[in-house]
Nucleic acid binder design. Sequence first.
DNA 1: CGTCAGATTGATATTCATCAAGATCGGTGG
DNA 2: CCACCGATCTTGATGAATATCAATCTGACG
Lengths: 249, 249
Amino acid sequence: MNDLRDDRAIAVEALIRYLECRDQVSAYERNLLANLSMRFKAFGKGEELVVEHSRPNESCLVLSGFTGREVMLKDGTRQITAVHIPGDFVDLHALLLKLMDHSVVALTEVHAAYVPHQELVRISEAAPHLSRLLWLSTVVDGAIQRAWIACIGRRKPLHHLGHLICELSVRLNAVGLAPRHSFDFPVTQAQLADVLGMSLVQVNRTLQALRRTGLVSWKASTVTIHDFAALAELCDFDPIYLNLINEPR
Amino acid sequence: MNDLRDDRAIAVEALIRYLECRDQVSAYERNLLANLSMRFKAFGKGEELVVEHSRPNESCLVLSGFTGREVMLKDGTRQITAVHIPGDFVDLHALLLKLMDHSVVALTEVHAAYVPHQELVRISEAAPHLSRLLWLSTVVDGAIQRAWIACIGRRKPLHHLGHLICELSVRLNAVGLAPRHSFDFPVTQAQLADVLGMSLVQVNRTLQALRRTGLVSWKASTVTIHDFAALAELCDFDPIYLNLINEPR
DNA sequence: CGTCAGATTGATATTCATCAAGATCGGTGG
DNA sequence: CCACCGATCTTGATGAATATCAATCTGACG
């Protein structure tokens, strides 16, 4: 395990890198972030970073690995409503929501940092612009969720899956984790089914159909997009909703 | 049409009522809101309040009627990713997103107020707590979208429709528009299909199945829930995600 | 080698979209 | 007042898409 000094540096850098994809972060703001108090924790596959119905007093940032927001229905089925990648401030809204309406679970091995809410409130008082950037990060999550609603509601399975892969590739690439449209995504087809709102068998067959297009390969846990433009065209993927434009907010 | 003084009073009251469902609004904060500059506009069914790919410099608040966020796919199908009710600050995220990734359309006749972004930025500088409340309103929108993802992805049509009705009833009731679980919802089944991600025929049949449960009647444009507790139980509806709890944020 | 999780496959039943045709309703103009 | 019209709702029939069930296969690992 990394020592704490490493974890802290990683967390602060990840967060700043995330924010800098969308706007400038001033030295003053960097300094505020660098002085946040944090605790760190590692999670195994399936473990919960944030528990449904709890009242967190800290918010959680992913340092490595993939997490998902999980909604369990009373009939026992599960829907994952969001996938978060390293650098995402996954649980920032707990600051405002107070009471969790869902869990955040580790889809893979995960390292995470927790920041006390009072420190975030302090930022919102002391640094309005930085506060808007944090606000922005929750708003981008909302934009992604809207894209997902459209995918589940109206796209064909093949396009839905391809759209997801495009999205992950672009998001990971923004934080340096998907060079040449290739990235590691160690999830099972069963997990993927809960992300896509399909059955396991359907996922398996859709994956095969996607491979047959020749645009993507997915071997072991490595996803590689061979022709991003063609895949984006096929799946009607337009990255505008990810808001990866650096401009004043 | 109302004169402007009326519209302004309605807008400010609607917004304060919305925020007060979740936290206290101080006299200072009220005053800031009351002095926002606004322009007002009326829309007919199907007209766009906010246009995809535009760069709004003002954000839009619904005063009366229902609006929806509309995503059009290249195959011509449509998905509505959110329904907004009077009092919702529909387009608050445009403040941060800059470039719209979707449209906001009038599902019925709609009156709306537009507030310049610079005034909202000023609030974020001058009133951190009020700013957090506005942030909260976008975060609640996100929570609703997550619930929708779960509904589209995993619930049966009957439960999905019932869940939507429960949600609308609770949200409308919070702003005084659904006394005794009865409210006006003048949308066509075709619009509903785009909300639910189903075909028109499916919506029609699901509506009939819902009527047969005896828990809901939907005549002309009036929806009445006869047994809210039973409907909520049937559809696995838990209002926690709407965050209608008044507490410090 | 045996075990286990995960991936794959085939068969079957169900659900759902689509197509096409009426029925109903509200409003309009003669 | 009535005939007509368009929008919306309703219904039945059909085929395609998808979930489900039940094996079987594969690869990693002790």
